[in-house]
């Protein structure tokens, strides 16, 4: 038994060494990449929670297209991420779900260059599968006895909801103001509320449990998603490459597939 394992281990090590030599060979033939890591190295991306599914896919594609690179994500609410970055968190790229949160980072002088808007996202009404309460329009959410979850206005989805409701001139008292969009969605999935306002991408990502209903007033509150390389980035080359990949045709294709709109 022991001997077999040792043999296997030896073979594994041999393969690894061979692969390493190959990678090193690649690195020397492309001078743009840092030769130390044999690729683009590790890229740390701080991204808005609503980008989770799309960016995970883009990260995988990027790693496949750039051997030797490794993308690590920190997904959270954009405002929490902006605070973390301004407090010195080690990140290479910041992708925000709203211009306001990007502005706190650029205003603090923590961005390298100016931010680029790469996608847009729009609110939809999300209801449990089958739409048991027969909700058709934004006005239906103001019906008495209906439980609605919104995001808190401190986070982008809540700010957008407030804008859309103001544009429609509706006053709506939700039962809860959730800390991020995924929490609002979870309350619908669990059946605790009858409806919530979330991004179209969130509704699309949970199509098995919920239905997303487009409403015209949401055009008054479209979120723009900016992305930027950070000044404190320890891996600028990798960061630039990742940003370029997000903006590339392949990157945008993944994002639009998830329900985002082109800017």
């Amino acid at each position: 038994m022991r001997k077999g394992t040792a043999l296997k281990l030896n073979r594994f090590l041999a393969t690894a060494v061979a692969a390493g030599t190959l990678l090193a060979g690649c690195a020397t033939s492309t001078p743009a990449t840092p030769p130390r890591s044999g690729g683009l190295g590790e890229v740390t991306v701080f991204a808005a929670a609503s980008l989770t599914d799309a960016f995970k896919q883009i990260g995988k594609d990027f790693e496949a297209a750039n051997p030797g690179s490794e993308v690590t994500f920190n997904f959270a609410g954009s405002s929490a991420l902006a605070t973390q970055i301004n407090q010195g968190a080690p990140a290479d790229v910041f992708a925000s779900a709203a211009l306001a949160n990007m502005k706190t980072v650029t205003d603090a002088g923590n961005a390298d260059g100016s931010a680029v808007t790469f996608v847009k996202n729009q609110l939809v009404i999300v209801v449990p599968k089958g739409n048991p309460k027969g909700i058709k329009a934004l006005a239906d959410l103001t019906k008495p006895g209906l439980k609605v979850a919104l995001c808190a206005e401190q986070v982008p989805c809540g700010a957008a909801a407030k804008k859309a409701l103001a544009a429609a001139n509706f006053s709506l008292t939700p039962v809860t103001l959730e800390q991020d969009v995924k929490q609002a969605l979870a309350k619908v999935k669990l059946g605790e509320v009858d409806a919530a306002l979330v991004y179209r991408t969130d509704a699309k990502g949970s199509a098995a449990d919920v239905e997303g209903l487009e409403f015209p007033e949401s055009s008054q509150a479209i979120n723009e998603y900016p992305i930027v390389v950070l000044k404190a980035s320890p891996n600028k080359t990798g960061a630039q490459a990742f940003l370029a990949y997000v903006l590339s045709e392949q990157g945008i294709k993944v994002l639009t597939g998830a329900g985002f709109q082109k800017p």
């Binding site: 929490a80 809860t176 103001l177 800390q179």
Partner: peptide, 25 residues
């Protein structure tokens, strides 16, 4: 609290929830 009772000022927003949301902005 935030998971079970949600967050609504005056009804379910306790101090720790208020701190967390203030931290957002």
């Amino acid at each position: 609290t935030i998971t079970f009772a949600g967050n609504f000022p005056g009804r379910t927003q306790t101090m720790p929830l208020a701190v967390y949301l203030a931290l957002e902005t």
